[in-house]
Design a protein around this nucleic acid. Sequence first.
DNA 1: ATTGTTGAATTGTTGAACAATACTCCCGCT
DNA 2: AGCGGGAGTATTGTTCAACAATTCAACAAT
Lengths: 232, 232
Amino acid sequence: MTDTEGWTVRLSAARPLFERAGAAELVADVLRENVIDGSLPPGTRLSEETIGNLLGVSRNTLREAFRLLTHENLLVHELHRGVFVRRLAAADVADIYAMRRVLETAGVRAAATAPPEAVREVGRQVDEGRAAAEAGDWVAVGTANMRFHRAIAALLSSPRVDESMARLLAELRLAFHVMGELRPFHEPYLEGNARIAALLAEGDPERAERELLAYFDAAQAQLLAAYAEHTG
Amino acid sequence: MTDTEGWTVRLSAARPLFERAGAAELVADVLRENVIDGSLPPGTRLSEETIGNLLGVSRNTLREAFRLLTHENLLVHELHRGVFVRRLAAADVADIYAMRRVLETAGVRAAATAPPEAVREVGRQVDEGRAAAEAGDWVAVGTANMRFHRAIAALLSSPRVDESMARLLAELRLAFHVMGELRPFHEPYLEGNARIAALLAEGDPERAERELLAYFDAAQAQLLAAYAEHTG
DNA sequence: ATTGTTGAATTGTTGAACAATACTCCCGCT
DNA sequence: AGCGGGAGTATTGTTCAACAATTCAACAAT
């Protein structure tokens, strides 16, 4: 036994692999994927019969999956009318950004006491984004951007914050579908993200926070503008 | 029509009365109550057959209720084993306080731009707590304390923050059951809460934040101490 | 004492049935 | 033509019963 202390934690880390998911969870995963990537646009009605036949599950399990996604704010449930892919109002977009401001600014302020690996992860996502941009893959730039901001919140090392952040970003993707072109929405922020990562790496959280807040204002304004145009 | 602007909000406030809650929601309400007040202690297994017969609902609706509460982090669901009242680990308690620090300090910093009514609500809960303390009702002091902290987070005027905060505090109640006596846990903080409210009212968020952080450290330490004693 | 094995109990999932509600289309009326 | 009203249809809400899959405890074997 060369390893006199670490094997228990390594085993318990592997534990999630054993708690398999039930059918409802699997169905929810599939639907979540299709909602997030836009295959099921906001407003789409999800018929129990149709989806049930499509995925080969019974109505009961399907309803459990619906309930899961409803509580993730990706679907809305109207009594006796069915479930629909959520349509975010402008106020929702603003609220999501409000909460992101809270969580992410707290993240950058915690950078000093965060594990170095967590700080490196922020920079890593900047590189991912740049690589995707050079390849012209703006969808990949978008996901790299999401991961960048998740990494910022993760500086707090709080599972609950991580989960909230993941849910907020998943919700936000519902709003992205109103943006026709992704490039003008993602490209301008590649540089800003790089600046934030650099400021964090060199230990200047105050300026990183200012930079981050500027990003929020710009991105929110841009998104809401597209929103007003799209709905009006 | 003497009322040219307020009737729409009053109507929409009455709206919840019309969208009937399904059976699952009602069952969830009952169970939530019993979990929160300790009738169903952490670790209790909730048998589908037993509870189903007890409440007179079918297994399907019961399972939907279970899922609701699982998503609120009050129950845990283990595949093929059933649902159990959540047992909070010490790490969970610490994490809950970590996220509270994030949300509530953000609330305090937003006090200047928050609606005056929201600031008054903070002070109101201080008074509630004091009144309950004089009456010797330490359970009521506890709920007033919860509402006090919810009011602080509510200074951000963000529905999503409010919901997160409500869930965190509901979770935290699971931990309170290890405290035998409530008085020594709640009484010391009445004065601190009053100071925080006063500092907010007179526009000194920096000191309010310091006071609040001191509260978090003290309460978390006290709770974790009781935890260590109880489990060890 | 540890390791298989068996069997009972519980959960997971399905399909069907019926009730309650919303939606559609057609009819009669103005 | 346009506008209600109403019957019929389609969909969801809820329950129930059955079977499959899995866990758990008791027991047997080594």
